[in-house]
Amino acid sequence: MSDTASEVQTHTIRLELVDEPGELLRALEPISEAGGNLMSIHHERGNVTPRGHIPVEVDVSCVPDRFERIVDSLREAGVNVIQAGAERYDEELVVLLVGHLVETDLSDTLQQVESCANASLTDLSLSAPRGNDESSSARVRLKTKSGTTEEALATLRDIAAEKDLHVIEPLTGDQP
């Protein structure tokens, strides 16, 4: 029997930082102080959340009870922790959205995707036509938790259908 309480695991923490100098350092300090081993930092500077914050994903390896302490100390330090857990957002999902994206409030669409589909938006490219009649297209890159990509896609489909948007999905399964 393995002792899960003492097993070192990799945990992903999603933070949202205010776009000011020193913010990233301030967020990382509590992690090292609490004994977490920083594995990777994904700092999405070009990708501002609807609230004007910068999303940051941090992978930390440590034992579970230490992880809780890290999250607590981050929150105590006033850092905005969006999500913390052992699950890693390690599956990538790229879809195209086609339709009246701007008129149907693209940022609301994406926010819904992030909150309902439990996915994290990592990249967005929008191509909108000059006129209003034509459809616009967006390429949306999402990170989802292992094994939940199908679920995320299903939610995405529902959100898109509600706004009469067309989702061009990737082929699932490993395409060579």
Partner: peptide
């Protein structure tokens, strides 16, 4: 319903 822009975004 596929606009040319969707193919451009895919190609990028």
């Amino acid at each position: 319903d596929i606009p040319g822009s969707a193919l451009d975004l895919a190609a990028e």
